[in-house]
């Protein structure tokens, strides 16, 4: 019942929004400045039919997955090492604190010089944007692992790699998953900027391309696609979280 009611409220709100938009577009009377929702819907249909929408979305999504995967494979082990060992923390802390505030987006001009225009630029920028939330979140998660759990495993003779695998990692997993979601969100923001400036394909490129063609309805269609994909990736991560951590189902805030 609550779900049906929620859906109704959702549809009602979006319908009112679409109506207001429609009215405003009539008032403005320019399909360049503010196309009506119907025109945008038509642009969605067209871009979907000629494959442009899904192709560019697929390219951006693939870059995202690649970049985040590389970031996770490097940042999570480093974060665990930094969380567990003072020597690692001492060695890397300053570097991380120096590089972290430099937004991934600020690397775009230098990355343009290094990589040129192409797929490697957005992947690098996204990797960079994802890396720091992951490393910091993992290190903090590992440092905050309940000391009693570590003590309990020590009294059972569980130490070393086994302890990392079966105590530290699961105990830090909620923090790691939160930072993974932050990392993906940061990557999504970065991909649009990176593709807008320095890639010959992808959603960011498409938005800029259609803007220069003055095809505002198509621009809006692609912007909506970014929103939808951003929402879907986060929903996917939440589902993954629920799967990886069935034990946290009722205790997660």
């Amino acid at each position: 019942m609550a779900r049906v009611g929620g859906l109704l409220v959702y549809l009602r709100t979006m319908a009112i929004f679409a109506l207001a938009w429609y009215g405003l577009s009539l008032l403005v009377g320019s399909r360049l400045l503010l196309p009506s929702p119907l025109l945008v819907l038509d642009a969605v249909r067209q871009s979907a039919l000629d494959g442009e929408l899904l192709r560019n979305a697929g390219i951006s999504l693939l870059r995202l997955v690649l970049a985040v995967a590389v970031a996770a494979l490097t940042a999570i082990p480093l974060g665990i090492a930094m969380g567990l060992s003072r020597a690692w923390r001492d060695a890397f802390d300053l570097l991380v604190e120096m590089l972290r505030p430099v937004a991934g987006i600020a690397w775009i001009p230098l990355a343009l010089f290094i990589f040129g225009i192409g797929s490697r630029l957005p992947i690098f920028i996204m990797f960079y944007s994802a890396f720091f939330p992951l490393v910091i979140g993992t290190a903090a998660g590992v440092r905050n692992v309940d000391a009693r759990l570590l003590a309990a495993s020590a009294t059972m003779g569980v130490t070393g790699v086994t302890r990392i695998r079966h105590v530290v990692l699961p105990a830090a997993l909620p923090a790691i998953m939160v930072s993974l979601r932050l990392a993906v969100a940061a990557s999504w923001t970065a991909v649009v900027a990176a593709e807008l400036v320095g890639a010959p394909s992808g959603l960011g490129y498409a938005i800029e391309y259609y803007r220069s063609m003055l095809a505002t309805p198509t621009v809006m269609a692609f912007i909506a696609m970014i929103g939808v994909l951003g929402f879907l990736t986060d929903a996917g991560l939440r589902a993954l979280e629920a799967r990886l951590m069935p034990w946290a189902k009722d205790i997660r805030p």
Partner: peptide, 11 residues
């Protein structure tokens, strides 16, 4: 919310 600010820059 999932639409980054930079995405609406063209608009």
């Amino acid at each position: 919310r999932p639409i980054a600010a930079i995405a609406i820059l063209p608009l």
